[in-house]
Simulated scan of single mutants.
Amino acid sequence: MIHARVTVTLKNGVLDPQGKAIEGALTALGFGGVDQVRQGKVFDLAIDTDDRAKAETDVKAMCDKLLANTVIENYTIALA
């Protein structure tokens, strides 16, 4: 069993209204000095294989087909 963590974030230059809302809320709560908040998504997956190369290939395909909108989002994969 291989565990994968996929982190999906918006590409630089893509507007992030949710990040801006979080930034404003943090400031309103008294957390000064917070700037350029970007939000994202994290997916934790358990892949039923011992082949790390196959797991990475499969997770990349999952990201490209479903987990990330590659037009506006980047993703990183970490295998454990």
Rank of each mutant, 00 (worst) to 15 (best):
H3P: 02
H3C: 05
A4P: 14
R5N: 10
V6C: 09
T7R: 12
T7H: 09
T7N: 08
T9P: 07
L10I: 06
L10E: 06
L10P: 11
N12P: 15
N12D: 14
V14R: 12
L15S: 11
L15C: 11
L15V: 13
L15D: 11
L15Y: 13
D16W: 00
D16M: 01
D16T: 06
D16I: 08
Q18H: 14
Q18A: 13
G19F: 05
K20Y: 03
K20A: 14
K20V: 13
A21W: 02
A21N: 10
A21L: 05
I22Q: 01
I22T: 11
E23I: 01
E23Q: 14
G24L: 02
G24D: 10
A25M: 04
L26M: 12
L26W: 09
T27L: 07
L29N: 11
F31N: 13
F31S: 10
G32H: 13
G32N: 15
G33R: 08
V34S: 10
D35K: 12
D35S: 14
Q36K: 11
Q36W: 00
V37T: 06
R38P: 13
R38Y: 01
G40Y: 10
K41S: 15
V42P: 08
V42W: 00
D44H: 04
D44V: 05
D44L: 03
L45K: 04
A46M: 02
I47T: 06
I47N: 07
D48R: 08
D48C: 01
D48G: 04
D48A: 13
T49A: 07
T49W: 02
T49V: 05
T49P: 01
T49N: 03
D50Y: 00
D51N: 14
D51I: 00
R52A: 15
K54F: 06
A55K: 01
E56Y: 01
T57K: 12
D58F: 04
K60G: 08
K60E: 15
A61N: 12
M62C: 13
C63D: 05
K65V: 04
K65E: 11
K65L: 06
L66E: 09
L66Y: 07
L66C: 07
L67R: 02
A68C: 03
N69T: 08
N69D: 10
N69F: 06
T70M: 03
T70V: 14
I72Q: 08
I72D: 01
I72S: 02
E73D: 09
N74C: 07
Y75T: 04
Y75A: 10
Y75C: 02
T76D: 11
A78N: 14
A78Q: 09
A78E: 15
A80M: 09
A80S: 15
A80L: 11
